[in-house]
Design a protein around this nucleic acid. Structure first.
Length: 95
DNA sequence: CGAGTGACGCTCG
DNA sequence: CCGAGCGCCACTC
């Protein structure tokens, strides 16, 4: 793992505006990575000071151990979920 | 070097 | 909706 990749991912996640979300795949692409798994791994290492809750799966769901808190944090930003899933079509951050 | 695993993604049935 | 398969990168036995 090189430091640069790590920082790039952090930069992308940190740049997601409140009320918007991105999928792991999106983050990977924006960070110039070839695999979304890398993003997941990096996120699991250190999410301090990062709006990690704005990153979910492409289908709008989140990982089991984070699901509850994540939806809670998103709800606080105006991102409402139905049946535990976020409508990516509406909240996906596209530039 | 091979096999398993993970905050993943996409397609197909 | 659910599971199965395959691809992906890095890391640990």
């Amino acid at each position: 793992m090189d430091e640069e990749t790590f920082e790039r991912v952090r930069a992308v996640v940190a740049s997601i505006p409140p009320g918007r979300v991105l999928s792991y795949g999106d983050v990977a692409e924006l960070a110039g990575l070839r695999s979304p798994r890398l993003v997941g791994r990096i996120m699991s290492e250190d999410t301090a000071d990062l709006p990690w809750h704005r990153v979910l799966r492409s289908n709008g769901t989140a990982a089991e151990h984070l699901r509850h808190r994540q939806l809670e944090l998103l709800r606080a930003e105006g991102v409402l979920a139905q049946d535990g899933r976020v409508s990516m079509r509406r909240y996906r951050w596209s530039t």
